[in-house]
Design a protein around this nucleic acid. Sequence first.
DNA 1: GTATGCTTCAAACGATTGTTTGAAATACGG
DNA 2: CCGTATTTCAAACAATCGTTTGAAGCATAC
Lengths: 232, 232
Amino acid sequence: MSEAAGSRQVSDTRDRILDAAEALFVEHGFEATSMRMITGRAAANLAAINYHFGSKDALIQEVFRRRLTALNRERLAVLDRLEDEAAGAPLKPSRIVDAFFGTALDLAADTEHGGHVFMRLLGRTQTEPSAFVRKFLAEEYADVVERFLGAFFRALPDVPREEVLWRFHFMMGATSYSIAGTDSLQLFAGSFDDADPKRLRPRLMSFILGGLRAPLPAFAPRGVGAAGSSDD
Amino acid sequence: MSEAAGSRQVSDTRDRILDAAEALFVEHGFEATSMRMITGRAAANLAAINYHFGSKDALIQEVFRRRLTALNRERLAVLDRLEDEAAGAPLKPSRIVDAFFGTALDLAADTEHGGHVFMRLLGRTQTEPSAFVRKFLAEEYADVVERFLGAFFRALPDVPREEVLWRFHFMMGATSYSIAGTDSLQLFAGSFDDADPKRLRPRLMSFILGGLRAPLPAFAPRGVGAAGSSDD
DNA sequence: GTATGCTTCAAACGATTGTTTGAAATACGG
DNA sequence: CCGTATTTCAAACAATCGTTTGAAGCATAC
């Protein structure tokens, strides 16, 4: 269905470069990955990157774009479907969380088409400061974040928006870190033999849902807050 | 009390280089920060880095070491005090969480002595792949992580250790991300005017405690799990 | 005052960086 | 089969990288 449609073969070299760059960026980062390393791994000529993409920075953007737009499109599609089914009623927070982070975890569990590699790159880059990458990611995320924040606001009308914002932030942190760090920073040596991505999903979901539903911090105006004691 | 004790002045240049490097690493990352940028900002000669530290990699390690050992020492001191007070009884999980992440947040809130800058660097580097930095951090964290994991295991005897391990991982992710990303990746444009670090602490604590206390994921053997429904 | 050890300095080192060039090779439409 | 794009190639470009060098500066001790 995908490889038989070609009216023209859009340069196999281009895709090989993207795959090689993706993998090397995960291993060494952007700056530490040279164009010679990429073209070497892709079995392409050094000049091929500038020919196909224009510059190294443009290549970096394309590495993100080709997968991130697909991921965010799926996120929006799932959210659309949820809102259709709800027919105007506010969504359950757990459904919204699943639509946003579950899709990411599914992609992270895909080891066949390189989704795993990419998600590790994305998770790591989320906290990366490089100016133009930051700007690019912000643009790429803008629509999706706006939609999901709106859904959260409607689903949690009693929680101050600022609080929802922060908790969304925290959820992104836990997710990014667990995807990016699964086998990079081995702080807990020898204990992650059970790093099966299929098991990561329910584990992380329990955690971030627990965080989302936690009683509000003391200084905030009370609104939700199920459990009382903040001292155990 | 600190500047008057000097039996010998240990080269003011050395500290200026460390401060400059710390700040530049946060802004641009390790690879993208050149030695000329560092010495330029520190008002030092280019050769000063190799003279005082030996190499750029050694400088990077020293930037982490001088603050991280202090942080981890304080973490262990707080934990020691808690265990002394408990006199053999298991600690409250919230106390352990506070001993580990609260100390980090306090350092992140310190804008006077550069703790804020450093914690942003640390949070970002936690997911950084560079081989020797990873190895260095793993060694630097080994003792502290072992102690705190042991404390968690004793405090949560009914929770499978593997589950505790993962949730510690998730807590680190949420913390690192919220510290490093507060003003770097602005996914939620214009909404973080209230990025007061003093308010970050109770917010984050509520979240990660909620995650730690969340009901265990479905596949895991039941053990704790306060709230029942995993579907709202 | 002279000698000694630590620090700073300008200059240069070879290596590697991203990018450009112009010709050779290949594929495609007539 | 020819002519025209498209893609690949080896080679070189200037710029910047981390590091080294040897002399100059400077303090302290004899």
